[in-house]
Nucleic acid binder design. Structure first.
Lengths: 220, 220
DNA sequence: TTAATTTTTTAGATTTGTCTAAATTTTATT
DNA sequence: AATAAAATTTAGACAAATCTAAAAAATTAA
């Protein structure tokens, strides 16, 4: 049940889970990129994880987590997000500086520790980045995303998806330097045409149309 | 300055520091025992630590930490004790169950994290076991120890030293199963002859003489 | 549908920390 | 002081995780 996996293996499982989540192909190269390592090392590790029945792997074909692998990944994500919440809420860190520290803390083993921490923090449901925190059993709410048109003014958020995948919208988004993961903040909503003045990555404000805003999905 | 050492190396430095502190000979066997490993492995590691100027080592002679080695050891001890304090005071763990978890947490790198944690906890000066917590610069108060005769009733403590090292007292202590590290609690003080009724390691109470009690040094 | 390119895997090496078994040095005993 | 015992070190091996360079498979392009 509570087998202890190496930090490295835990990181592989987490990276695979995240790639799956984003509907990306979980390729050897993508994993190497995500884990800052070399494709050959990824192949080596996939064979070991398959050995341990944490994932299904047929060479050249790709990878899929087993139920057990998913369970392990979710526990790491739970730990990561609870520690991030702790760092921001209790130790007054900024939300942009906690990721690195949580990358270390997430590999601390004790389940009792993390369940106590969860209670101490008041069982938060989302971390400081707006990502949902899996519960003690690994259950996780789907990411709350809304069209930018429905988001409040003067609150920082992050682009989590694009409503319409046409080349035309992508061209426009590209021109405005908006992509998944970009930080956004609505500064003003113009009632006349419902266009929005927004800050992209904290740069000087720009204006976008309502139609575009309706197709930008943001967190929470 | 802030070189990152492996968990294993940090554990060696900490073990050496503790053995030095207790005025024990820092021998290869003692280290193997403390670290639950084999003497041959200790020799291998000592050569590496010497290489990195964390300690002085002449084969067959023994070991002594350099200033740098001591500094690293004290930072780990600081982290260990602050995390223990956190676990007991904030997460409601019992003081006897936190050591294991702190053994993992003490290897988390960020100095900023530990300084913030220190402030969050109100800069405690001793951990839940009564051991002093080194400050941010590695300064540590000497361990507060008092003769058992001066200790309060009904408060758990730990034997930290023996006042008189004669074979006679050691024979008696041995018979009563009292050694450094043993848990003690005074249950009653008899005014007639100042003898003490005490519990040793939470077993059935026994009685000891004032003379013996004066030679048992306990924490805090 | 071949050929070129990209992706992935294999083979063999390296580093870190560990081990066993044997050799060496130190310490204790007679 | 010689010998026995204990402690320590060396030599050689191993597992985990990584790497480089080369080979193999899959994909893309001509």
């Amino acid at each position: 049940m509570h087998i202890k996996y190496s930090t490295s293996k835990e990181n592989y499982l987490k990276a695979i889970f995240h790639l799956q989540q984003e509907n990306k192909n979980v390729t050897t190269n993508a994993l190497a990129e995500a884990l800052q390592t070399k494709p050959a090392s990824v192949t080596d590790m996939l064979k070991k994880l398959k050995e341990q029945k944490l994932l299904l792997y047929e060479k050249y074909y790709g990878v899929k987590l087993t139920a057990e692998g998913k369970k392990v990944a979710l526990q790491i994500i739970r730990k990561h997000r609870l520690w991030e919440y702790f760092l921001v809420e209790k130790l007054a860190f900024g939300w942009e500086e906690v990721h690195e520290i949580a990358e270390e803390l997430e590999h601390i083993g004790s389940k009792k520790l993390i369940d106590r921490l969860d209670d101490f923090l008041g069982n938060p449901r989302v971390d400081p980045h707006g990502d949902p925190i899996p519960d003690s059993n690994g259950k996780i709410e789907p990411l709350q995303q809304v069209p930018l048109t429905d988001f409040v003014v003067n609150k920082l958020t992050i682009v989590t998806g694009i409503g319409n995948q046409s080349p035309e919208i992508l061209e426009l988004l590209n021109h405005k330097k908006i992509a998944i993961g970009t930080k956004l903040e609505i500064k003003h909503r113009f009632e006349f045409d419902h266009s929005l003045e927004i800050k992209v990555n904290n740069l000087a404000p720009i204006t976008i149309s309502e139609l575009l805003a309706r197709n930008i999905l943001v967190k929470k």
